[in-house]
Design a binder for these strands. Structure first.
Length: 679
RNA sequence: UGGUCUAUGGUGUAACUGGCAACACGUCUGAUUUUGGUUCAGAAGAGUCUAGGUUCGAGCCCUAGUAGACCAACCA
């Protein structure tokens, strides 16, 4: 009953709700997703796809897929196909498949109209000359000498441009707007350029091609898109978008509105087609669909599901600020999905031989294993069991200690879905490496038998495979492609400097239970206790290759790894997207939290304030003496900084003396202590 | 030296017309568990960038700063 009360809206939805409230007819709502077919879609595009198509679903409005194909030099049919495949795979249906190139004739006609109205002219300068006249963001531009060319002349030249009479780069059509506009895009932007390249759809019909700005808004208008949503870097284009619409707008038709949202970034990867292309071209990855790539096709190959990506987009949300979403959110989404759906199987990646000495030689039996404990009706599959098995090398220690819930000498564990065993002895080679573990099993303890022995509590449960029955396969494990959280955010280093050399680990000889011989590309598996896996497209008959999608959450591994600096709360690191702070700001930032700290944390914070104080001046600090009484933390920080300055020889002003005296009389113990330290 | 935009726990987002700063991830406990998974119960973590102002009351409104992003392709 209590369903979706007070569901919070993102700012785009607020805008739409507002428009609806102001009388915009709901049935006129229409959206579009407008990729340029010059690369593969990535998880950032997924945000836009889910936004636009999600809005379509929410308001029952059509959503067009429109390829923004105005530059034949970069665009290819391969990309069109890949983009359609990815969107369909995500589970979205477009109302119409459109292309900006569908509107080339209409765009051309409108351009002629602009020339006739004196709003556009043909220029014939070099790109250098035009760039020089354009000015800079802080200085106005200057008019082209051809700006006031007679209309008839522009009309004639433009037609001859279209007819292919001129070389590429020799002539341009420009809008006549304002060369001194503070908005660079309004300084007589280019509408058309000559490009002598065949277009993937129009072939050689045209040798002039419209620029993005001239094509995009008009395409929205032709399609009667109500809300044209794009990323923030197009904000400055909006004025031009509106200016173009002003020139051609017929008030009986719907007028599209552009709105901008922030692109979504993911930690430990890059999210620009140019950079992803570079990874592909430099063979750092195997292709656009390399499972380490943040592309939709890479994620699909890795084993991500459409649901998980849609869920991620949903959870991450839409806003207008810079962001770096933690990849752990994406991993949460895929684990949540796969936990409910993946078939449980067993595979051993780093094997050591286990011999059950009291199990009859030559005997084997078929055991039943649950396909998915999260789904009561998911059934079981057969798993062969025998005297000689493989288990993971990490699952055995001669003397494991109290917190080791696995196999060790003299201790019992359960073999998943099989029997309880006890390790008796080990066989080592001359260098001390364990070759075999010998154990005994309790024949009464068979899983599911219901016997008392089978219900015995033991220290842990291990996965295993029967050596005789196991199939061999290659398994590929992936780690983050970059070692830095935001590899492309550094001024002094390029993103390629942060490549993780160990992002791919190939296990060429993993042993898997025979059930996996029938795996298909659509199957999703959980290799128990290891993670989620899916078949890779490199698999051939007789040689299966599995990709590790993501590991299970591993609290055991966490206990054994010293706390990584990246996981610690960051007090004063400058890795945030907002960048580096000034020393004084940083002191304020740290100080705020001072009253929440104690012990080592407090000491660390105080000493980093002292260090930062070396870099500030008394003049900067003095205004903070007036800090409100309740902001104790800030006053402590200021006190520490003041002490540092005084120790460096700063004269004690009357304002400082008063601040110190007040500190000594304060209720707060820490503040009093810091004040007392000053002589 | 211009214009535009942004600033809320470690991260990502909410907070409707100004009214107890909420949710998710992550982190930490505990319970359950034939996956050190899942599930369940709980905890810590925010002076809402700074300084002023308006107001009975400000994350929200006003002023002034600070920091970051975007803008000068015949790319999109």
């Amino acid at each position: 009953m209590m369903k979706e009360t007070a569901e919070s809206l993102n700012f785009i939805e607020h805008i739409i709700e507002e428009d609806l409230k102001n009388g915009f007819p709901k049935d006129k709502l229409r959206f579009r997703f407008p990729p340029e077919p010059n690369g593969y879609l990535h998880i950032g595009h997924a945000a836009s796809i889910c936004l636009n198509f999600g809005l379509g679903e929410k308001y029952n409005a059509p959503v067009n897929l429109r390829f923004d194909d105005t530059n034949p030099a970069k665009e290819e049919q391969e990309y069109v196909d890949a983009i359609k495949r990815d969107i369909a795979w995500l589970g979205f249906q477009w109302a119409n498949e459109c292309y900006s190139s569908d509107y080339f004739q209409q765009l051309y006609d409108w351009a002629i109209q602009l020339i006739k109205e004196g709003m556009a002219y043909v220029d014939q300068q070099t790109s250098e000359e035009i760039a020089a006249q354009k000015g800079t963001p802080t200085t106005a531009g200057t008019d082209s000498p051809f700006r006031n060319r007679p209309i008839e002349e522009s009309l004639d030249l433009f037609e001859r441009m279209k007819n292919g009479e001129f070389a590429a780069g020799s002539y341009l059509l420009r809008a006549k707007i304002d060369m001194s506009s503070p908005n660079m895009h309004m300084r007589d932007p280019i509408l058309y350029r000559i490009v002598n390249k065949p277009h993937h759809r129009t072939g050689s019909d045209w040798c002039i091609y419209p620029m993005y700005d001239w094509a995009h808004g008009q395409s929205d208008y032709v399609e009667q898109v109500s809300h044209s949503l794009c990323t923030l870097e197009f904000k400055a284009h909006r004025e031009l978008y509106d200016w173009y619409l002003d020139q051609i707008y017929d008030s009986s038709l719907l007028r599209p509105k552009q709105r901008e949202f922030a692109r979504r970034n993911l930690s430990y990867t890059v999210m620009s087609k140019r950079k992803l292309l570079e990874l592909v071209q430099k063979n750092i990855v195997s292709g656009w669909d390399d499972p380490r790539m943040p592309t939709i096709s890479g994620l699909r190959r890795r084993g991500y599901t459409p649901d998980s990506i849609r869920k991620f987009s949903d959870l991450a949300g839409i806003s207008k600020r810079d962001n770096v979403t933690d990849v752990s959110l994406l991993e949460f989404c895929i684990r949540e999905d796969l936990n409910k759906t993946a078939t449980r199987v067993m595979g051993v990646l780093n094997p050591v031989k286990l011999v059950i000495t009291n199990y009859p030689e030559g005997k084997s039996e078929i055991l039943q294993m649950e396909n998915n404990p999260e789904q009561a009706d998911s059934g079981t599959h057969d798993v062969p069991f025998s005297r000689e098995l493989y288990i993971e090398r990490e699952d055995f220690k001669e003397d494991g200690g109290k917190k080791f819930f696995r196999l060790s000498l003299g201790n019992e564990v359960r073999l998943k879905s099989a029997y309880i065993i006890k390790a008796e002895s080990v066989v080592k080679d001359e260098s001390g490496v364990i070759q075999e573990i010998h154990c005994t099993y309790d024949p009464e303890s068979k899983s599911g038998s219901g016997t008392e022995a089978s219900q015995r509590k033991v220290k842990g449960t291990l996965h295993w495979v029967s050596i005789e029955h196991a199939i061999q396969a290659e398994v590929r494990e992936y780690d983050r492609l970059f070692l830095d959280e935001a590899p492309d955010s550094h001024e002094d280093k390029g993103f390629l400097d942060f490549i993780n050399p160990e992002s791919l680990k190939v296990i060429s000889n993993a042993f898997l239970e025979p059930h996996l011989a029938n795996a298909t590309m659509d199957d999703k598996y959980q290799f128990q206790r290891l993670g989620y896996f899916t078949l890779d497209s490199d698999s051939k008959d007789g040689k299966l290759v599995f990709n590790k999608t993501v590991g299970l959450k591993d609290t055991w591994a966490k206990q054994n790894t010293p706390p990584a600096p990246a996981n610690q709360p960051k007090q004063n690191q400058n890795s945030s997207p907002q960048g580096q702070k000034k020393p004084l700001n940083e002191i304020q930032q740290i100080s705020k939290k001072l009253t929440n700290f104690s012990g080592d944390k407090l000491e660390t914070a105080l000493s980093s304030i002292a260090t930062l104080a070396e870099e500030i001046s008394y003049d900067e600090l003095e205004p903070l003496f007036n800090t409100a009484a309740k902001k104790v933390g800030t006053r402590i920080g200021v006190m520490v900084a003041l002490r540092v300055l005084l120790e460096k020889g700063q004269e004690k002003t009357s304002a400082a003396a008063e601040f110190i005296a007040n500190g000594k009389a304060d209720d707060n113990e820490i503040l009093r202590a810091e004040a007392e330290k000053i002589n």
